[in-house]
Design a protein around this nucleic acid. Structure first.
Length: 481
RNA sequence: CGGGGCAUGGCGCAGUUGGUAGCGUGCCUGCUUUGGGAGCAGGAGGUCCCGAGUUCGAGUCUCGGUGCCCCGACCA
């Protein structure tokens, strides 16, 4: 008997930790708050990177790399920025055995070091826009950590763009949050709500922050990606001006946007079950495992299994055979379910005699017979498509069922324990803070998606749930990770 | 930084009034098995977190330290 995973109903938080560790996605390290991303976990990240990187390139972005170390004077340049980040930074004071003349901050994000470069690169409107992304690690000295969701060091991508006009930067901010939404929904099969953060939740140094928010299986919200309009804040801090086509000087407009390995945590908490990981096919490095039932003429069974794998691979479906005799079929079933392989094909002498095999779906655990002929790859690819779709549908249904509207604070308090709550807010930070203090719930997002807005009449005026003052719109509250 | 918990074979744990360390699982060998985490036999594997103290004798008692995890405040 291998590792037992705590059930979700018993202890959701422990379930998550058990799953991450027993599916070998990540491990704790001896460094506080830092994790080791194991091959199974890293494979998911590589799939995410590949898809996102392609989407970035398709929208005109290029990759580059900036230093890990940021001089203290750079970090300090933008007032709000340092105020927000300094408390959670690791700082290098010594190098080569000697104390440094200027301390170096291990990047918590790279706006400052990048804008120091942009200042050198930008003179004219002809140098704009700059559309750079970097894949990197960052460090934030978190007080409390959780595997993938919040660790002291994590991997991410950060896009940093420079534009000639506010409008152009605004378009970029929306374009990228849109890409994140598309990625979350198409690849991760995780529905998200796209919209704006309130002032208190926005990025340190930004004018506006857009985000995508997802609902986890315990009803809590998880911010899965952010895109910031930085206005001219960093350009001013780094004195980055350019000459316009009319010959005037203006400060450069900036954006930044990012997603991190936190997405792996989101993926787990969106779909997985008590048996282990459930991976959407589009993020599975191995989509099909073939398990031969080794009895009778073993050689013949293995040969047939191999030929199925070959046919699937040729068709573009990554499949592999586990023909080891060390473990029983039952052991393998459990193991690959734990690892989230989307489809398991069982193949024994009886099946071969009947010219069929059995396909078991990881998400629904349903088993169906598949004809063992040259249509097999087509049949398998159809099941993969269904899994991808049905994961999304199920998550969306769950989110809808756990989204409630509240018109009184009493109703709000009850509802917010179980999921998202849509309610009127007077727009003040004071009210937001009070509600957080009393319920631990925060305003997750002011949706900017038309269908969501119209569905819940988000823009209809009303009365604030807490203060009773006039409210221009409804917002989404939830407890969050 | 507050509150709680844990530290003993790889992993999960037990260890009584102090007597020289054991169980499950995993690992290695062999045989039998194989359609939902197989069985039997044999075997390897320990600085009991660190330091000091009490004692003839400490995994166990005393004092001091360290590390990690969980719950809160802060955060992608």
């Amino acid at each position: 008997m291998a590792d037992k995973i705590t059930s979700r109903s018993q202890d959701y938080s422990q379930w998550y930790i058990d799953l991450v560790r027993s599916a070998k996605l990540a491990d704790y390290s001896d460094v506080r708050g830092c994790m080791v991303i194991r091959p199974n976990g890293y494979a998911i990240w590589e799939k995410m990177q590949a898809a996102l990187d392609r989407m970035f390139k398709e929208t005109g972005h290029v990759n580059a790399y900036f230093p890990l170390f940021i001089p203290e004077s750079y970090i300090a340049r933008e007032a709000e920025h340092i105020e927000g980040f300094a408390p959670e930074c690791a700082v290098v004071t010594h190098g080569g055995g000697e104390e440094l003349a200027e301390k170096l901050y291990v990047r918590p994000t790279s706006e400052t070091i990048i804008w120091a470069s942009y200042k050198k690169w930008i003179q004219s409107y002809r140098d704009l826009p700059i559309l750079i992304n970097q894949w990197a690690n960052v460090v934030r000295w978190e007080m409390r950590t959780r595997l993938f969701l919040r660790t002291a060091e994590f991997l991410w991508q950060e896009g940093h763009t420079a534009h000639a006009t506010r409008q152009e930067a605004s378009e970029e901010v929306l374009r990228m949050i849109g890409i994140y939404k598309q990625f979350a929904e198409e690849y991760m099969a995780m529905p998200v709500i796209m919209g704006k953060k309130t002032d208190s939740e926005k990025f340190a140094g930004a004018d506006e922050t857009y985000c995508i928010e997802a609902m986890m299986q315990d009803g809590k919200a998880l911010q899965a990606g952010t895109s910031h309009h930085l206005g001219q804040n960093f350009a001013k801090a780094f004195d980055c001006q350019f000459q316009t086509s009319e010959g005037k000087l203006d400060y450069v407009w900036a954006t930044s946007w990012g997603v991190s390995t936190r997405l792996i945590g989101a993926l787990i908490m969106a779909h997985s079950d008590d048996r282990g990981l459930v991976l959407p096919p589009k993020l599975a490095t191995r989509q099909v495992v073939i398990i031969p039932i080794l009895r009778g003429d073993k050689t013949a069974v293995i040969a047939e299994a191999d030929s199925i794998a070959l046919a699937l691979n040729k068709y573009g479906i990554p499949a592999f055979v586990d023909a080891s005799e060390q473990n029983s079929p039952g052991w393998k079933f459990a193991e690959y379910e734990l690892q989230g392989i989307p489809i398991r094909i069982e193949l024994g002498p009886r099946d071969i005699a009947e010219k069929k095999c059995i396909a078991a779906r990881r998400d629904t655990l349903e088993k169906t017979d598949l004809a063992l002929d040259n249509t097999l790859p087509l049949q398998v690819s159809e099941i993969l498509r269904q899994i991808q779709q049905s994961l999304f549908d199920k998550a969306l249904r769950f989110r809808t069922e756990n989204t409630r509207e509240a018109t009184t604070f009493e109703a709000f308090k009850t509802a917010v324990e179980k999921g998202f709550v849509i309610a009127h807010w007077d727009g003040t930070a004071e009210t937001e803070t009070k509600i957080k203090e009393e319920t631990k719930a925060t305003i997750r997002v002011l949706p900017s998606e038309d269908d969501y807005i119209s569905r819940y009449n988000m823009n209809e005026p009303g009365i604030c749930i807490y203060s009773g003052k006039p409210s221009a719109q409804k917002v989404i509250f939830a407890k969050a990770y």
